[in-house]
Amino acid sequence: MGSLTTGLRRDGRSSGRRSRIPLPGFAGRMMAPGLLVLAGVSLLPFAAVVIMSFSRVHLLGGLRLEGAGADNWTRLFTDPDMAWAWARTAGYFLLTVGGEMVLGTLLAICLWRLRHGRNAALSLLLLPMFVAPVIVGLLGRFLTDSTFGLYSWLLGQAGYHGDLMGDKTTAFLSVTLMDIWEWTPLVTLIALAGLTSVPSSVLEAASLDGAGMPRTLRHIVLPAIAPVLLVALLIRSMDALRYFDIIWNTTGGGPADATKTASVRLYETAFRFFDFGYAAVTGLLMLAVTTVVARYFVRLLDRKGLAR
């Protein structure tokens, strides 16, 4: 993670009167304990992962690393299944995060416009985000089981007799929907926080202008909460690539690999195949992708923040 700090970003702000000596001030002393702990639990493992990516990792009789040059890395380019795993990851990312953003914002606007029972509704709608992902996965499996699953039964009553987890498309959609179920509330919460902070004077001015509801939303409300939405987007996109509990506990990557995302591959490589060298490569690649995505959102956020 150390390498991430290389200057990707060009700061637009003028650097006027900045202290030349960075840390030892009060601010530095305040940061020190937290940053030291963080460095301890992140830098050392990170360095180890980088080294592992260039090694064959022997576990028996105590861990040993044997240099393997770039073997693990070149394997990445000859791995026939990796490109597909990434394609599916991209699809999964877009569908889950996109769905959560759209639905979460929509729901937040609805709640915000609700005159009665807003708090009660919000309380109930928030519940899924407190559920452990491993429980979401197992619960999803319970609900979609073709013998006794409630949802399978409901779909059967509605005339659909296929098997949700047996078909590639429906299995993919099912795990996507489970993720959306769990994380839409977080977006709703953050978006609602943003909405409640939109000054009512702004809205009144808009209504005096005679702007209709859709126009007010589009030109006044959405721009006002855009920075908050970006925060939600950032939080979700950091986790969307990493988490695999739901997929692992429902489909395990199947059927026909339809739900095998990069994070499932990573887990499998590390803890089913115990190929830690190649797992390190996969992990670093995931970290790089997440970083690039997050970096992009952070820059967008800075710009929005400044524009405000």
Binding site: L44, P45, V49, A270, T282, L287, T291
Partner: peptide, 19 residues
Amino acid sequence: SFWIISTRMAPIAAVVLPI
């Protein structure tokens, strides 16, 4: 500040062995 937030992005399965 970006480094700080980036430490949260590490894929768990990769860093668990060293940890």
